[in-house]
Write a protein that binds this DNA or RNA. Structure first.
Lengths: 236, 236
DNA sequence: CAGTGGTCTAGACCACGGT
DNA sequence: CCGTGGTCTAGACCACTGT
């Protein structure tokens, strides 16, 4: 008796596994309507609550589509997903067993270009804290970041010595972000970035742009360029 | 009474919101041990099951760290995550309202380079189906893909007319993948890719490498190069 | 209108793991 | 050892939505 319990009843994971087996074996083919929770519970000898948890989990994983009164259907194409942890460079580097270095390259307080102000949904003349910084791993360039911070949302940032602690580490500890957006892409290194990253201008770099919010207020917009050859791995 | 129910009791989402409020307000500061489920249930006037569901959800979202006997603690740094749906190019294009075009550029059956065979955990002499193909959006190059398929895992693929249906669409419908790996990065377009994508060699391209498995058997390894300027947006 | 999933409850047993 | 979270149950009411 592999994953049974008292009296032969199944736990929700076992029910999940059994349902997944039927989906994969095409006993429940793509698009098909599967039995309702009560019937499945009776068939499998467990409570409806248990079936509910199992099927809810499979729906979340992209295998099933559930709707009240409409019943539960097998997705035509399982919509698999991968989880991308929002990176905190310092922690990422240290988790890899490397030493994390950090250099603040520039710091200015002034309104940004129109595109930046617009991206932050702020009037063109709102002053922003503009930072350029370099993260190092074992003394080699790792990530170059260009960051804009909205002091209205985080006044305290103006008093922080950002030459000693990187902005992301500080923000993560002091600002309870509510939500954000993230954009991945690739770009050629411009002169300034190339100089900082110690590579040739035009080199293809992996880029990540992140915009975070505190309720309705934009907090920070950061564009990061990763060292040549950087690869971001995920599983699903 | 915003999100209450019969008799003023709270639903699990309301309990979740309240807990999140306390975390954000630092009533439960980072690293702190919060009350146990039974106490919270008593305080909030609901069943322990309801509190359990709420806190389990917050733990999954990266705000809490829970362990038996150890209790529930607020994460020092909330570990936020973004969800990356595994893309199926055809569906992605059509969801954008574009027309999806597809051209098979080459098709060969032979063992691949040592690096490819190794990535698939296959002996160096196992024959693989090698495809190069181009996806178009509104008749413009969108994605160039270089794909290796393991016929041992999917014998039927050898009889499919891959000039008419793209490999991904076929595989997704016929092979119940169990899991996979995904690697994101940036690279310079090589001669062949540049020609197919109608751009200059050396152009920075966003790349995605995907390896999928059917239980213990590798199914397919695909490297996709996206058109210049491609951006992948996510929210969190 | 009626069927299906969504959720809450009160009580119970259990597994894990800190002390 | 024993407190805490993890889970199951049986029953109930409710919300949504296809028919």
């Amino acid at each position: 008796m592999p994953s049974e319990r008292r009296g032969g009843a199944l736990g929700w994971q076992a029910v999940r596994d059994e349902a997944l087996r039927r989906i994969r074996a095409r006993e429940w083919p793509p698009g098909a309507l599967i039995p309702n929770e009560a019937d499945l519970a009776a068939e499998l000898g467990c409570a409806r609550t248990t079936v509910n948890r199992a099927l809810r989990d499979l729906a979340g994983a992209g295998y099933l589509d559930r709707r009240r009164k409409g019943g539960t259907r097998v997705m035509q194409t399982p919509l698999r997903k991968a989880i991308l942890p929002i990176p905190v460079i310092r922690q990422e580097v240290e988790a890899r067993g490397g030493s994390h270095g950090y250099r603040l390259l520039s710091r200015h307080l002034a309104p940004g270009p129109a595109a930046v102000q617009a991206r932050l949904s702020l009037p063109p003349d709102t002053p922003l804290l503009h930072l350029r910084a370099l993260h190092l791993i074992d003394d080699r360039p790792y990530v170059h970041e260009d960051r804009w911070i909205n002091p209205d949302a985080v006044p305290a940032i103006l008093g922080v010595d950002l030459a000693r602690i990187d902005a992301n580490s500080w923000l993560v500890q002091h600002v309870p972000f509510t939500h954000g957006e993230l954009v991945l892409g690739a770009g050629a290194a411009d002169e300034a970035t190339a100089a900082a990253m110690d590579c040739l201008p035009g080199t293809a770099l992996f880029t990540m742009e992140r915009l975070t919010w505190l309720n309705e207020a934009p907090v920070t917009l950061v564009t990061q360029h990763f060292a040549p050859g950087y690869r971001l791995g995920l599983s699903f």
